[in-house]
Computed example of a mutant assay.
Amino acid sequence: MAEKIIMLACSAGMSTSLLVSKMEAAAKQDGVDYKIFATSAADIDHQLSQDPHPDVLLLGPQVRYMANDVKKKTDKAGIPMDIINMSDYGMMNGENVLQAAEKLLGDR
């Protein structure tokens, strides 16, 4: 079973799918076991209600306009949330995005 669950959310969940692959490769290289998945912003409420729910949520830069509303929901659920750095997103830098998630989790 994965140590932590990292959820990425964007408009449709498709543009973050490649980033998920890059993050999984970085996690494997770092020797950590995370479940990392992408979903649409419309699916955030559903995912937050799941058991187990994500341990951290990263929003794609294209849905940053939703950050305040999503933050209220993640705060209520006790889940840290942030927006993926636009440069790391554009370059599909899985290692940097993974490190950002770990920082939110308090890992490493």
Results as ranks from 00 to 15, higher is better:
residue 36 I to D: 01
residue 92 M to P: 01
residue 64 R to L: 03
residue 91 M to R: 15
residue 41 A to R: 11
residue 47 Q to E: 15
residue 68 N to D: 15
residue 20 V to R: 06
residue 80 P to E: 03
residue 73 K to Q: 14
residue 50 Q to N: 11
residue 14 M to V: 14
residue 63 V to C: 04
residue 99 Q to D: 13
residue 56 V to A: 03
residue 66 M to R: 09
residue 85 N to C: 13
residue 71 K to W: 08
residue 37 F to C: 04
residue 72 K to G: 09
residue 68 N to R: 15
residue 97 V to L: 04
residue 97 V to Y: 07
residue 35 K to P: 02
residue 31 G to E: 14
residue 71 K to T: 15
residue 74 T to E: 09
residue 17 S to F: 05
residue 42 A to E: 12
residue 70 V to N: 00
residue 19 L to S: 09
residue 46 H to T: 15
residue 24 E to Y: 01
residue 32 V to A: 04
residue 42 A to P: 00
residue 34 Y to C: 01
residue 57 L to I: 07
residue 26 A to D: 05
residue 75 D to G: 04
residue 80 P to F: 11
residue 27 A to Q: 05
residue 92 M to T: 10
residue 38 A to L: 08
residue 44 I to P: 00
residue 59 L to K: 04
residue 26 A to V: 04
residue 36 I to K: 01
residue 68 N to W: 09
residue 92 M to E: 08
residue 89 Y to A: 08
residue 75 D to A: 12
residue 78 G to W: 10
residue 19 L to A: 12
residue 29 Q to G: 05
residue 27 A to P: 06
residue 86 M to I: 15
residue 73 K to P: 08
residue 64 R to Y: 03
residue 73 K to F: 02
residue 93 N to T: 04
residue 53 H to K: 15
residue 61 P to C: 00
residue 90 G to E: 08
residue 42 A to C: 06
residue 95 E to L: 13
residue 17 S to N: 13
residue 89 Y to P: 06
residue 30 D to C: 06
residue 100 A to P: 00
residue 74 T to M: 06
residue 24 E to T: 14
residue 49 S to I: 01
residue 38 A to P: 14
residue 59 L to D: 01
residue 42 A to V: 03
residue 21 S to E: 14
residue 74 T to D: 06
residue 92 M to F: 08
residue 76 K to C: 12
residue 44 I to L: 09
residue 37 F to A: 02
residue 26 A to F: 06
residue 43 D to Y: 06
residue 62 Q to G: 00
residue 50 Q to S: 12
residue 42 A to R: 10
residue 48 L to D: 02
residue 19 L to V: 11
residue 34 Y to V: 02
residue 96 N to C: 11
residue 100 A to G: 06
residue 58 L to T: 08
residue 84 I to W: 07
residue 68 N to A: 15
residue 72 K to D: 09
residue 36 I to N: 00
residue 18 L to R: 09
residue 36 I to Y: 03
residue 86 M to Y: 12
residue 81 M to P: 00
residue 35 K to V: 08
residue 42 A to M: 09
residue 20 V to P: 08
residue 44 I to E: 02
residue 57 L to Q: 02
residue 47 Q to P: 02
residue 84 I to S: 06
residue 93 N to Y: 03
residue 74 T to V: 09
residue 23 M to I: 11
residue 79 I to Q: 13
residue 16 T to A: 11
residue 21 S to M: 12
residue 82 D to M: 03
residue 74 T to W: 09
residue 96 N to E: 15
residue 18 L to S: 08
residue 95 E to F: 05
residue 75 D to S: 12
residue 23 M to S: 04
